[in-house]
Write a protein that binds this DNA or RNA. Structure first.
Lengths: 209, 209, 209, 209
DNA sequence: CCTTAATCGAGACGGTACGTCATGTCTTCAG
DNA sequence: CTGAAGACATGACGTACCGTCTCGATTAAGG
């Protein structure tokens, strides 16, 4: 993230001289950007100039907080992201289902919410924006998944010889492909359970003839 | 498609007066755009102006053929797609490995990888582009995969109770997720075999008899 | 003058490719700037942005011709400057009177014309603008004066031992001081003749007692 | 003068509560502005922001004392003016030479020269500034010159039929033109004498008897 | 001694203009 | 009629100042 922004990093708070930054302005900026996206403005047309006008704010007030369009969008996205799911902890299968269900919900939401729709659409056009999204949103979820799998392996609920990174992709990949890369596919209820159970069981027939 | 472009539509060839359009210019434009993408230029910075400069061509020469960045991009994709892989037909596992290996190769090659990334990037914001990619690239591969799985199910190499669409995502998803959504992950040799074998076998520990 | 501008310099005319610059746009810019000055807008508030709006022209169209505010103003000023006076050539005194009369007229005009008033006012705030004005307006007049004095010296109408540069300042200085540096002083008809005759005759009493 | 400033107006001193204004800050501001002018910064680039930075002072501290750049500048001028020259009183020629020498010195000194230039620059656009300079600097010198000339006329050192105002301009004009309007010209030693002697003697050739 | 109040440096605030760049359209000359 | 070249109006970019404001910290004089 840019040095102009300390959103998310717990800075040790320097002596704080001069007039403090207005929280109202900050909210106005994020809300304004959000509103424009919800009104269907494509991300490509979301200029800093326009956000400033909408928020009733000077451009410098934006640049003081974010070093560019991309850095701002990271925070807009973060504000729109759902919380990390809470794991039940009642076993590998249950935890995996909850994780995948969270992904599925986001996929469902991004079809109804113009905001998520728009944001996810253009995100990969910018390496910087994509990298920030990776670090701030994707990576934590990924760590959560790996942690669940590690516990499952220790408990004997998962084969000991399998690579955890690969295993994570095996569960998450099918859902992401449907949710993010194939927007025309539906995401029916029960899909999470189906994926988890099928991957755990494997696709080979049970009784070899 | 725009009326300015007759790529793909078999126009009945109007009388054709005056100087004919230069095929050299057309190739220069497509190659120039491709080169920029390969060089890592983010799609957002790929201006018509820049493509024209790179190709040594007037801007009007581009607008005469395509009505905008999107339409041009559809043709760039068409020109850069690799052939469908040939299946060995020696069994479910081998066919799946060949299919995934084809995906992996594409992710490894910088040319296809850049395309893949950028197509995914623009996908949702450009229905036209997405539809073209869908029809020309995704759909044939998908049909191929489903066909392989259907044969495997008939042969008893695949569980009979599994949904083929789901099964396809189970194999393809992990590879695509690595190739497209996590570009920092490597795609080592042997990954295709590993995915296929693990998905077929499942992740549950072998029950100790 | 800026390389972006060839106003006044007789360029050898390169092959001239691409669309030629619009004379209409050029006139609109100069007229727009002139109009704003005449309407009493101070030079300091005469932004390029505002001129472009007034002239109905893009900013780039201005920057294509002039490299900045100052270069543009040089041409605006030139357009408002009176022509070089025509010398009668009937003798030193007559020529000098005509030269000074031209200065006087300009001084009178700059009190009635808001344009000249404004332009001359702020000109010296900018070294570049002032230098350009020196080179394009002042210097030619100065050369004219020196030429007149040189001829007078050859004809025996002027003392042979006097430095021509100094002599020029002796005639021009008093008028410029009144016209430009002391705006509250009046510039009555007959002043030119009075200055020329007095400087020629000297201030010492005729018959020393 | 602005109500924000009480420089020069003998205010009846209100009860004066709170922290008194810092004289150190005031000096720092005036010195900073002076320093920037001496360093050749064009008046147009002399922003309040920059003066505050140079002086190590908050912007508000400046605006508390002066209502704008103009008002500040009036005080800068007052602080930088040299003393009136002392006249020898040994005759018209000597007094005139001393007066002109004082002007020449001012043009040579970078400090006064920078001021002179910039005052002239802003003169017409700022009636307030001009009036202040007029009253504080020009008028006394002018009165001095006229007084010298009046005495010379009474003594018979100057033609009786010449207008004193005109005579004053005849001596002062050439020097001011060189110092203010043609800064590239040098002001060599001996120039004052040369001007005085030449104007007194006139430029007409001595009539060959 | 302890308020009270105006000052200080610092810097954020909503604005306006800067000079550059890309947009898609147009207008020229050359083939 | 097409080629390239490039001018056109438009509008966003990120920076610099504008003049105002709001902070915590000084610095007197008056209670």
């Amino acid at each position: 993230m840019s040095p102009a922004s300390n959103h998310g990093t717990a800075a040790p708070a320097p002596p704080a001289r001069g007039r403090p930054r207005s929280e109202a302005a900050e909210r106005a900026i994020l809300d304004g950007a959000m509103k424009l996206l919800e009104d269907g403005v494509p991300l490509a047309e979301l200029s800093i100039e326009r956000i400033a006008r909408t928020a009733g704010v000077g451009k410098a007030t934006i640049y003081r907080r974010w070093s560019g369009k991309e850095e701002l969008f990271v925070d807009v996205i973060r504000a729109a992201e759902p919380e990390d799911p809470e794991l039940p902890g009642t076993g590998l299968r249950d935890d995996l289902v909850v994780l995948l269900e969270s992904l599925r919900q986001r996929g469902v939401a991004s079809r109804s919410s113009a905001l998520l729709h728009n944001v996810h659409a253009q995100m990969k056009s910018s390496p910087k924006l994509w990298a920030a999204y990776q670090a701030n949103v994707i990576a934590p979820r990924r760590r959560l998944g790996l942690e669940v799998l590690r516990r499952g392996q220790l408990n004997g609920e998962l084969r000991a010889d399998v690579d955890l990174e690969l295993a994570n992709d095996l569960f998450v990949g099918p859902m992401l492909v449907r949710a993010v890369m194939r927007p025309e596919s539906d995401l029916p209820e029960g899909l999470s359970e189906e994926i988890v159970d099928t991957v755990l069981a494997g696709l080979r027939p049970v009784s070899p003839p």
